[in-house]
């Protein structure tokens, strides 16, 4: 027989729906970036559609993330010191790098038009792919290390999160 709650208090959810929106957008963007990198690596296609999805979702992902911070104006504190023990701190570096490199790649591809891809663009595509892996790794790792949340703290959780992305 469980205890009967005569008087206690509830905690409000600290990560609001903005966080869910962020994970959805950045996961979709990173997934598209991985498809793009794969397509260009094996040279089956230029995958411009995947590039458009990756760039637009990556760009959009920053907004809900900032919105979920209760102190969004202090986001520079992520960069004013080092906290390598925190997976979220690593993510604060991966995210702008991912957004920036994806947008730069979209710009290069758009500017090139139908001309052949140069070595620089191919290299940047691989960098985008690696950063997409970093994004997926940090988001999954950030949640799965939280032992206080039993559902997150499982081996299967990061796998599910990455596969859904």
């Amino acid at each position: 027989m469980p205890a009967v709650d005569l008087m206690s208090f509830d905690h409000e959810a600290v990560w609001r729906p903005w966080a869910v929106a962020y994970f959805l957008l950045v996961g979709t963007g990173a997934g598209a970036a991985l498809l793009l990198a794969y397509a260009r690596l094996v040279r089956v296609a230029e995958a411009k559609g995947a590039l458009i999805v990756a760039a637009s979702f990556a760009l959009a992902s920053g907004l809900p993330l900032l919105a979920d911070l209760h102190q969004p104006a202090r986001f520079m504190h992520f960069y004013s010191g080092a906290a390598p023990g925190s997976i979220m701190w690593w993510g604060s570096w991966f995210l702008p790098l991912f957004i920036g490199s994806t947008l730069l790649l979209a710009f290069m591809t758009g500017r090139r038009g139908n001309a052949p891809m140069c070595a620089g663009e191919r290299t940047l595509t691989m960098i985008v792919g690696v950063l997409a892996l970093c994004i997926l790794g940090y988001t999954a790792g950030e949640m799965s290390v939280v032992s206080a949340r039993p559902v997150w703290n499982t081996l299967g959780f990061p796998v599910v999160l990455i596969l859904t992305a």
Partner: peptide, 11 residues
């Protein structure tokens, strides 16, 4: 210094 990301609350 806190940015109120809520990560500590979750942890």
């Amino acid at each position: 210094q806190c940015v109120a990301c809520g990560y500590c609350v979750q942890a």
